[in-house]
Design a binder for these strands. Structure first.
Lengths: 344, 344
DNA sequence: TTGTATGCGTTATCAC
DNA sequence: GTGATAACGCATACAA
């Protein structure tokens, strides 16, 4: 092991930069390693004079405890990880910030991993990330229930966001997509729309399936529904818009705001006016859709709450407590300029 | 130490779930820990029969080597970290993806930390992240040169993106902001604009300072320049747009695309037509500004290259080699619909 | 080829 | 209060 002495003999411009260890500090300060450890951890019952000597030596040697060794000895890392399918989605960025801040208050740091919508990488990333830290937040994992269920023992403690896992005690934070969709549809129906297109998200997305279910349920006898394969990004929404003209629909329900925004842009390019010729609604209420032209009607998800709530539950789990299994937050209908009366 | 037996006696719904260690696997398979280690690491010179026994035991016990212990023993973690001031910026997301993929090819994983434009957190995050992994990529760090210089020994090996550090051998990848700004300004001048506003980014941003310098240099006798404090986000750009009307300018140079986009939106709300009444340019060419209305004229930064390039240099550093100090990529002027002839 | 012994850097137990 | 010393879980010279 430890061929670091070798590697430092290779061609390199910079200094060797061997890090000081607790042992070196101890020797330098003329105390035991135990004492150094105590001082570094702010243990009060060490003689002030010794403490000072230790601090001096540490400062001089540029010593800082190795987090890796510390983690091994402690059996905990002080880190939690969050796995998302797409960091480009502002929705997840909102969760990220909330989680970072909440965890920081308990002196925990957040590690972020992005599976980039890659289904195969997801379980690997999740498992690996989990083993390097003390807990996990899984945001909208794409893998199927069975796989997630199978991985559960290795991933615990973890919290789910945007998805539930039946038959387990895994806490989850979900959006009431059905309610959100109902509100959006009701709004569109009240405007006279009777034939809607749904721009579907990734078929690996559980929340997409939830939306589809809610739409079909609502459609019963009240309106026609056309489902169009799309995706989750701005580019996806932009690309799909051309198909819309042939569908004979007067309103579009997009998988999320990003898609809605993309579609909005393309429709504008095509000279199709929103909302007079076509209404469009999104989902999430990400920060800037209130500024699009026209501003986007959407189902507003209270993103700020997700991060802190996730932390609270994860923290409970890490302390051996059992938080409530599932909390479902209900989106609020945000009517803006992208919806209007059905044409004709 | 190790009071884990205590904690597992607390109130908890799930199973104890003590992880199997190499020792347990060894005992179960009836071999030494060394042999287990060899098998787990794919060492070929173990008797097939033994190897099989080990694999069986490992499988049965759900054993996987502890990354923490492994890191300690090996002196390396197989992880690199990337620190960004704002993950919401698509520019950094581009770097992130490129870096993730490039590092993955060498079996390295990427850890992301977001300082959220918090100047004080930045050095702490950087130092802490670095100590938990083998190398660092610092994206547009906001801390002053002196501080970065002071931290250098603790952060090495690391690579800078969007910023240089004089008097060191730290490799950096920078954008030729001056050239980009020159191209944009030349374009605007050719359209007859003679009085421009610059929407300034965070004053902690080195690249903002570079843009300002380039602008002032270009301004000499050729046009008037009004500098307006703004920021780096869509919301910042949106908020600042109201001031523009009183400035008597015909064109706006935004700190980046996000700001430009925000301004674009607000101008539209205000009924100010772009580009007939006001021209506007951004910087970066983030994915969707080609779809805004009108599409944004901008200086296109080859984002895809940044991640892989950063990895290549970091990899070299980690192997004791010394890559070239600084590589400056030149943005390409991308003329789209947001710029037009100066009014009157 | 396999096992033994030791080290990685830290914390914690237990004597002093 | 302080210092030996044994963990933590793994990898690797070295010996067998």
């Amino acid at each position: 092991m430890s061929n670091r002495s070798q590697s430092s003999e290779r061609t390199r411009a910079s200094a060797p930069a061997e890090r000081a260890t607790i042992g070196l500090v101890a020797k330098t300060a003329g105390v035991s390693r135990a004492t150094v450890s105590r001082v570094m951890n702010g243990n009060p019952r060490v003689a002030p004079e010794l403490a000072q000597r230790v601090r001096l030596a540490a400062e001089e040697l540029g010593y800082a405890p190795s987090p890796v060794a510390r983690s091994l000895a402690l059996g905990r890392t002080g880190i939690i990880a969050m796995l998302v399918p797409d960091l480009g989605n502002p929705m997840f960025q909102g969760v990220l910030h909330g989680l970072t801040d909440a965890a920081a208050k308990e002196n925990y740091r957040l590690l972020v991993a992005d599976s980039n919508e890659n289904l195969h990488e997801e379980p690997v990333l999740a498992t690996e990330a989990r083993r390097r830290c003390d807990g996990l937040v899984l945001c909208a994992p794409r893998m199927p229930d069975e796989q997630l269920l199978e991985l559960t023992p290795q991933l615990e403690p973890f919290v789910l966001i945007n998805r539930e896992l039946p038959e387990t005690s895994t806490p989850s934070l979900t959006i009431d997509f059905a309610a959100g969709i109902r509100d959006l549809v009701t709004h569109l129906l009240s405007l006279g729309h009777r034939r809607l297109a749904y721009l579907a998200g990734p078929d690996t997305s559980a929340s997409n399936r939830a939306r589809v279910r809610a739409l079909h349920k609502a459609a019963q006898d009240t309106f026609e529904l056309v489902e169009v394969a799309c995706g989750a990004t701005f580019a996806d929404g932009h690309a799909v818009a051309d198909q819309l003209t042939d569908l004979n629909v007067t309103a579009v329900v997009a998988y999320n705001d990003l898609v809605a925004f993309g579609t909005l842009s393309r429709l504008h390019e095509l000279g199709i006016n929103v909302p007079s010729q076509m209404s469009i609604v999104g989902f999430d209420d990400i920060p800037f859709v209130r500024y699009t032209t026209p501003p986007l009607t959407t189902a507003s998800v209270p993103m700020d709450q997700l991060g802190p709530q996730a932390w609270q539950r994860l923290w409970a789990l890490m302390n051996g407590e059992a938080p409530e299994k599932n909390v479902r937050v209900r989106p609020r209908l945000e009517v803006r300029g992208s919806t209007g009366p059905a044409p004709r």
